[in-house]
Amino acid sequence: QTIHNGDQTYHYDNPEEAIKVAQKLAKIYNLTVTVKGNTVQVH
């Protein structure tokens, strides 16, 4: 599972963990989380 947060990319073995982290980032920075296959984008 990969999270793209602007210019930063994070890799997680656990998809659920990746989505949790993405949602935390989204709340902190007031962003949107988009899940596309194995990629979670925060923008």
Rank of each mutant, 00 (worst) to 15 (best):
Q1A: 13
Q1E: 11
T2E: 12
T2L: 12
T2S: 11
T2N: 13
T2F: 12
T2G: 13
T2M: 12
I3M: 12
I3F: 05
I3Q: 10
I3D: 12
H4M: 08
H4I: 10
H4V: 09
H4R: 10
H4W: 08
N5Q: 12
N5G: 10
N5C: 15
N5I: 14
N5H: 14
N5T: 11
N5L: 13
N5P: 11
G6P: 09
G6S: 11
G6H: 14
G6A: 12
D7N: 09
D7W: 15
D7P: 09
D7Y: 14
D7T: 13
Q8E: 11
Q8T: 13
Q8M: 14
Q8W: 15
Q8N: 09
T9Y: 15
T9M: 13
T9E: 11
T9H: 07
T9C: 15
Y10D: 01
Y10H: 04
Y10G: 02
Y10A: 03
Y10P: 02
H11G: 03
H11R: 06
H11Q: 09
H11T: 14
Y12P: 02
Y12S: 02
Y12F: 15
Y12N: 01
Y12I: 02
Y12A: 03
D13K: 12
D13N: 10
D13L: 08
D13W: 05
D13V: 06
N14G: 05
N14Q: 03
N14F: 04
N14C: 10
N14H: 04
N14L: 04
N14W: 05
P15T: 07
P15L: 08
E16Q: 09
E16L: 08
E16I: 07
E16W: 10
E17M: 13
E17H: 06
E17I: 14
E17C: 10
E17F: 07
A18Y: 02
A18F: 03
A18E: 01
A18K: 00
A18I: 02
A18S: 01
I19M: 14
I19R: 13
I19T: 07
I19Q: 13
I19F: 11
I19P: 00
K20Y: 07
K20I: 08
K20S: 08
K20W: 07
K20P: 00
K20C: 15
V21K: 04
V21W: 11
V21N: 07
V21T: 05
A22Y: 02
A22C: 08
Q23R: 12
Q23V: 10
Q23E: 13
Q23N: 10
K24P: 00
K24L: 14
K24W: 15
K24H: 12
K24S: 07
L25Y: 02
L25H: 01
L25D: 01
L25A: 01
L25V: 01
L25M: 05
L25I: 05
A26V: 08
A26K: 13
A26L: 05
A26Y: 04
A26H: 06
A26R: 14
K27P: 09
K27I: 07
K27Q: 11
K27H: 07
K27N: 09
I28N: 08
I28V: 08
I28Y: 14
I28S: 04
Y29A: 15
Y29N: 14
Y29L: 15
N30G: 15
N30S: 05
L31Y: 07
L31H: 14
L31F: 08
L31D: 08
L31N: 05
L31T: 11
T32N: 10
T32Y: 07
T32S: 09
T32P: 07
T32C: 15
T32W: 06
T32K: 06
V33C: 03
V33F: 01
V33D: 01
V33E: 00
V33M: 02
T34D: 04
T34A: 03
V35Q: 03
V35Y: 01
V35G: 01
V35T: 03
V35R: 02
V35C: 03
K36L: 13
K36M: 13
K36D: 11
K36E: 12
K36S: 14
G37V: 02
G37N: 04
G37P: 00
G37Q: 03
G37E: 04
G37C: 14
G37H: 03
N38R: 05
N38Q: 05
N38A: 06
T39G: 02
T39K: 04
V40W: 00
V40P: 00
V40S: 00
V40M: 02
V40F: 01
V40G: 00
Q41V: 15
Q41D: 02
Q41C: 15
V42A: 01
V42K: 01
V42I: 11
H43N: 04
H43S: 07
H43M: 07
H43Y: 05
